[in-house]
Nucleic acid binder design. Structure first.
Lengths: 174, 174
DNA sequence: GCTAGCATGTAAACGGTTACATGATTAG
DNA sequence: CTAATCATGTAACCGTTTACATGCTAGC
């Protein structure tokens, strides 16, 4: 997901590491901070894989900046990641949100809709946090206050997301 | 979080690894599957730390079962984890939900309310996924359909969760 | 002169994923 | 007899966290 964010932001414009960190932080930093120890090695991996190019710009300020930009291979790779997300990127809300943040970089609206449809069918499959004797537990009868809250919030989220997905798929297909 | 789930479920009753896996799966397995390669080493860690005891029950069925139960130290440790969650367990919805699933095991309602209040103040701090010129971006004016969706869903979730938190804290304090 | 912000990196430890490996019991 | 389920584990790999490390520039 970190790699996807790097590729995604670089698709918009060339950036150096520090600025990239700020962008990623504004995307998901309030939930989970971005550490240098994750970011710089990830950049190095992408450079080694030929997906990202770097030009060192000395002087401007402080340590010499490495301005990063996507290569053609990088752009292709980003699109592939968006087009064919792994299961975990569909089921895990956190990861799916990261995907959504960059889904506009998939040029074909039909392919965008396809990704949304995968999320939709995941949400349509009835899932409940707790089971008692094999039966899903309803919010009202959950064993305690806290589990009631989990169910209530999860349900409200699912309702809103399903509504949005339906609208968005409609819009993309017209 | 895996360790918390193990301690949490064992607080309710002694279980063997396979049954533990089923419980954890029903909690969060639809979002992210639980792998044996994570579960069994986690159990071993907890046993080594003296938080979990195991009795091998041969014969019952298939491979010999190791029935796991919490030690006194394990119960104390679980309560400490619930009482003083790390920041990431408050800010990350996924982890906070895991916390919620076992918060009933904190005996003091005032301490339960304190945990909810931490989540509340995190949600009350204005956070926006995207910033343009330092200003948070509103859902309606987000750059594309997908980011609009992210903002819309995130907002609906926050609204519902805040409402529940307020009610729950009220209930716990009366 | 000092602190905050800019800017980049490395290394150890940790935890999780994936794949491999084994073997018993039960239902069809 | 054979597939599904029960039941437990190991090992290689991978990415993240945490801590450490460096040094410049701008404003107070």
């Amino acid at each position: 997901m970190l790699e996807l964010s790097i590729l995604g932001f670089l698709h918009e414009e060339p950036l150096h590491g520090y600025e990239l960190k700020a962008r990623i932080q504004s995307l998901s930093g309030h939930i989970r901070p971005v550490s240098d120890g994750a970011l710089y090695p990830a950049i190095t991996r992408l450079v080694k894989a030929g997906l990202v190019e770097q030009r060192t710009r000395p002087g401007s300020s402080a340590a010499p900046r490495r301005t990063l930009s996507l290569t053609a291979a990088g752009r292709a790779d980003l699109e592939a990641r968006l087009r064919h997300p792994k299961d975990a990127e569909i089921t895990d809300g956190q990861r799916f949100f990261t995907l959504l943040a960059f889904l506009r970089h998939l040029p074909d609206p039909a392919e965008q809709a396809e990704v949304l449809r995968r999320r939709q069918s995941f949400l349509d499959a009835p899932t409940s946090f707790f089971y008692r004797d094999g039966e899903p537990v309803r919010a009202e009868e959950a064993s305690d206050l806290f589990r009631q809250g989990m169910l209530r919030v999860a349900r409200a989220t699912a309702v809103e997301e399903k509504a949005w997905l339906a609208e968005a798929i409609e819009a993309l297909e017209s």
